[in-house]
Design a protein around this nucleic acid. Structure first.
Length: 645
RNA sequence: GCUGUUGUAGCUCAGGGGUAGAGCACUUCCUUGGUAAGGAAGAGGUCGAGAGUUCAAUUCUCUUCAACAGCUCCA
């Protein structure tokens, strides 16, 4: 009996029934077999050692496949556990999954403290065990057998997991002396794991529930080659250097104050400059795209949010109501701009001819985020959204969506984020009751979103069950210069608020109709966006955004007058910068300007002053020679032009 | 919010039961120097806040606040 195996290139080969993934890999090439980690059979990732019993489509997975890495790190978690068990017998194990970068394992070490030196010890043990090239052996076990094993071992966490499993679908994996409850898949043997680094230790509640016992979670990462580990560690270092909290302080962009309150950023002059450049850029782009700017207050009557439904759903996550002295009225710091915008929509009757109406506002909102969640500028309690709400007819959703996608892509491209994807978040088709709005509208909107994204060639992943209860959405993820992924902009369709606020327009049939609302924020929040931008460019902002574009550096005090003349002229032309007239040597002034990441340094001395020139130095590049001031300005202005809206 | 770690000068950090120290930054003076740190002097701190133990607390204990890491959450 033979089975037909379809390879990723579409070719079909025949093998005897029961052929293993490894044998298939070997038949393709020895080279492939050497680097094969796992196999995908009809979409399911499996061990290479498992036999294939029926006709299937397969893909051999290597380190270059996400599934290959997944298996690699999953096996590494087992290797970690094996090492831990040898070093500290009696350790109990929770779960140990692979994650985006590496793996973790939750363990219960009893009363033993686990510190830095333990990490090094376990690392060494892991490497030692890996060299044994122990095979990962898969075994089907009955539920009774599984329970029996872990009862004898005394591991209540595994027992709890087994209790939640169905008899007949339980598998054990064993490598060396270590046996774990696991559905796999795993590497052929531990020898693939050549480079090991245990990164940190943290507490984590068993099953993520704070009522449960806290286990010790150890994070680690492994690679097939030492060089890859070194590169990864270098990237971690680089990320530390680019941390926006560190750069924000060093470059004097923003600060926090205990007195002001946690999670409430203070924008310093340079940070404000940067932020205002971004706002101005967005404002222009939005006006061009047909948005009408509006302004609404920072607080709103509680009734406004009761109407919108936010009070019921998020009231406890808001700052508590403000009470007026006499009237007994209650106001909330606004957590959202949309209710205000709905009220603007309602200020007069709307005709189908008026739609779409696009109301845009850099609206500052306040949300009572959990204290443990606050993080630099990426998670704060007061932030400004580049918010807008588009009120349109159901048949306009797609067209409006396409326009918003264009705007978002324009923003990303202009800011140097050229690697982004989007997630289309759809309803859970099995649980439609969870959502508000008519079926037909949802179907229409979901179709329109997908079509809009496709039309613009956007890479999308559709995820069912991820929609908001009030409508489907499109979330943008950008990858930064270090390959990290961040969620930024979002576009959401909303059937809920138009209904709750009883928004209407008069159609061509002279009947009242309900508009659809689209919420959108390309940056998301200015705070978060600036944080991501800082980390993306490592504090070296594009020239048009840089708070200080130029530093004028006189060679000595004798040329301060000429320097002043130069900076005055630049300022006249709206070029941002400063004159460094300190009594310091030029080397020192250059160093300081370099450290502050000022894009251009203009060095002026006797030669320059005599001929109306400046000696140009570019940050990170060095001396570019001298130019007539007028020529430099012309060249500079070209380079510093704001991306076209 | 929960668990753990940390909190000393503007910044980065050392120290430690007898009220504190370094480097950088800052101020003044000397120096007038051509592409990444010139020299000297000086000033600067309720040792996060509150309470307790002690003859004595910045140091030990408790409480509290904040930051960091992780968990949970995110309109």
């Amino acid at each position: 009996m033979n089975v037909k195996i379809t390879l990723p290139d579409g070719s079909v080969r025949e093998y005897p029934k029961g052929v293993t993934g490894m044998q298939v890999a070997q038949s393709i090439s020895e080279g492939l077999a050497r680097v094969s980690l796992a196999i995908e059979v009809d979409g399911e990732i499996r061990d290479l050692a498992r036999s294939i019993e029926k006709d299937s489509s397969i893909k051999i997975l290597t380190w270059n496949d996400a599934g290959g890495k997944y298996s690699f790190w999953h096996s590494s978690a087992h290797l970690f556990a094996e090492a831990l068990e040898e070093l500290y017998p009696g350790t109990k194990f929770g779960i140990g999954p692979p994650i985006e970068n590496g793996f973790y394992y939750d363990v219960d070490l009893g009363d033993r403290a686990f510190g830095e030196d333990d990490l090094a010890k376990v690392e060494a043990k892991m490497k030692e065990l890996a060299k044994k090239e122990s095979r990962f052996e898969r075994r089907d076990v009955s539920k009774a057998e599984a329970i029996d094993y872990f009862t004898r071992k005394g591991d209540e966490y595994k027992l709890e997991l087994i209790n939640g499993l169905e008899d007949g679908k339980i598998t054990f994996y064993q490598q060396g002396n270590f046996v774990d409850l696991c559905r796999g898949p795993h590497l052929p043997h531990t020898g693939f794991i050549k480079a090991v680094k245990l990164l940190n230790v943290a507490g984590a509640y068993w099953r993520g529930d704070e009522k449960n016992k806290m286990l010790t979670r150890v994070y680690g990462i492994t690679f097939p080659k030492q060089k890859e580990l070194d590169e990864y560690l270098f990237l971690l270092e680089e990320a530390k250097k680019r941390d926006h909290r560190k750069l924000g302080k060093e470059l004097e962009l923003f600060a926090f104050s205990e007195k002001v309150g946690m999670g409430l950023p203070l924008w310093l002059p340079k940070g404000t400059l940067l932020r205002e450049r971004l706002e101005q850029f967005m404002r222009k782009a939005q006006i061009k795209a047909g948005y009408d700017p509006v302004v609404t207050p920072h607080i709103g009557s509680k009734q406004l949010y009761v109407t919108s439904g936010h009070y019921e759903k998020y009231g406890k996550d808001s700052f508590q109501p403000i009470h007026t002295p006499d009237e007994g009225e209650e106001f909330l710091l606004k957590p959202m701009n949309c209710p205000h915008h709905c009220e603007i929509y309602k200020t007069k009757p709307r005709s189908y001819r008026d739609l779409p109406i696009r109301l845009a506002e850099f609206g500052t909102v306040y949300r009572y985020e959990q204290s443990g969640e606050l993080h630099g500028l990426t998670r704060v309690r007061g932030f400004t959204q580049d918010d807008a709400h588009i009120f349109c007819r159901p048949d306009q959703v797609k067209e409006e969506f396409v326009k918003v996608i264009d705007l978002v892509m324009h923003v990303f491209n202009s800011l140097g984020f050229d690697n982004y994807t989007a997630q289309v978040s759809l309803r859970d088709p099995n649980n439609k009751a969870k959502y508000i709005g008519e079926d037909s509208l949802w179907d229409l909107a979901e179709k329109q979103i997908q079509e809009a994204a496709d039309e613009r060639g956007l890479k999308t992943v559709a995820v069912q069950g991820e929609a908001a209860f009030y409508g489907p959405k499109l979330d943008f993820m950008v990858r930064d210069a270090l390959g990290r992924s961040w969620q930024l902009g979002t576009i959401q369709v909303d059937y809920n608020l138009p209904q709750r606020f009883e928004l209407e327009y008069v159609g061509s049939d002279n009947q009242k109709h309900r508009p659809v609302m689209i919420h959108r924020a390309p940056f998301g929040s200015l705070e978060r966006f600036v944080a991501v931008l800082i980390e993306h460019c490592g504090g070296n902002f594009p020239l048009w955004l840089s708070p200080d574009q130029i530093a004028v550096l006189p060679i000595s005090e004798r040329f301060n007058d000429y320097g002043q003349k130069v900076i005055d002229m630049l300022k006249e032309l709206d070029i941002r910068g400063f004159l460094d007239d300190r009594d310091e040597k030029i080397q020192r002034k250059i160093r300081d300007a370099e450290v502050k990441k000022v894009p251009y340094m203009l060095i002026v001395g006797e030669r320059e002053a005599a001929e109306n020139k400046v000696s140009v130095r570019r940050h990170g590049k060095g001396d570019l020679g001298s130019l007539l001031l007028a020529d430099f300005v012309e060249q500079f202005r070209k380079e510093a032009a704001t991306p076209l809206a």
